[in-house]
Design a protein around this nucleic acid. Sequence first.
DNA 1: CTAACAAGAGACCGATGTTCTGTTAATTTG
DNA 2: CAAATTAACAGAACATCGGTCTCTTGTTAG
Lengths: 215, 215
Amino acid sequence: MTFQRARRPEHKRQRYEAILAAARALGTRQGVRAVSLADIAGAVGVHKSALLRYFETREEIYLRIATEDWPDWVQGMRARLAGVAVGSVSEVAAALAATLAERPLLCDLLTHASLNLERNVSLDAARAYKRATVDALAAVAAEIRTVLPELSEDDAIELVGAVNAVAASLWQAAHPPPLMQALYEEEPDLRVANFPFEPTIARLAETLILGIRAR
Amino acid sequence: MTFQRARRPEHKRQRYEAILAAARALGTRQGVRAVSLADIAGAVGVHKSALLRYFETREEIYLRIATEDWPDWVQGMRARLAGVAVGSVSEVAAALAATLAERPLLCDLLTHASLNLERNVSLDAARAYKRATVDALAAVAAEIRTVLPELSEDDAIELVGAVNAVAASLWQAAHPPPLMQALYEEEPDLRVANFPFEPTIARLAETLILGIRAR
DNA sequence: CTAACAAGAGACCGATGTTCTGTTAATTTG
DNA sequence: CAAATTAACAGAACATCGGTCTCTTGTTAG
């Protein structure tokens, strides 16, 4: 940071982005839950109260990140599905799993959004987040339908929503706190989800597609 | 409560149960997230610090409730599936959805357990919770296999786990904070899950079973 | 160079989970 | 029955966190 106080608009923009980048890095490394305002401020090199000139609350920082990551996920799915042969169920399933596995912060935020973030934020921030969410689900559903045209629009959205829901839960299960890690080493059979994240999501997505076709 | 101070073991037991009952009632009414130690203490008619003679931390109270509710869910599924005709996919799906919908606190705790509760608790409490979880999943899977014997044990556990995961996410989505409720009234199309909890879970469970069969 | 403005620091506040300490009610015992 | 004991409990204190307030001072415009 070459400036101490961001007075010009472009500097403020830089600081805004620096806050988001720091929150991203910390959230990815230690989990969103474990990141405090002071942590982010320290990483940016600024006082805690200065952050709140850029975001109304802590929740808005992470809700903003989630809002940004939805379109990024859509892009990832679009790229992953480009050129996939029509009708390839396993490719669609693999794409869903891979693009989510590549975005651990988004998976973490899936849980935090409904539980923690959708509170204590401005109506505008909430609206933007929800808009990004429904748009992303619809866009990914549309991408999937280019590969699997036999799915209806509702079917595709249901598929994407269910995969996201399971990804949220499984991501939390796959990243237990230290206490639980110690317990699992002692008694491995207590681990409910002892399978890796990406293959499990892929398998579930494929099962769902087959089930939708079969009903 | 006819005693002010619980000195005899049976009185202590009563108070322990009273704390759990109060935490249950509050958690069911306002959501686990919104219940503070002082809330529970007030409902029991005791000081906040007195609760911590019975439980090491706030998390242990709700983790204990979750530990108790797993076997209760197994019982619910067992009762619901007794007498169901072998091969009835829709009955199994309906049973999963109905027994979860009847247990809103368990659905809420599904999210909180992995995100919040599995921290700051004693190793014994964590072990008991995990044991109850894996036992319940296995027991429900076994019940389902009596109706759908074509499912392997692994298939059945996978099914139950996935249904729980989606139930956790959908329950949170179905109970948005006031801010989001206001937003949804303004722009209904922003509601991602605008379908009711139980039919959605039933539909998903049925889809999963069909998918497992088809693969 | 100077004046004005607002970014930021630091003190402060309120809520919450948790700990500490003194009190006193319930039980036990002489 | 009275006195002694002891641990359950209340209340105060503490730590941490998100968030507010106020004042300082670096930055920019004129």
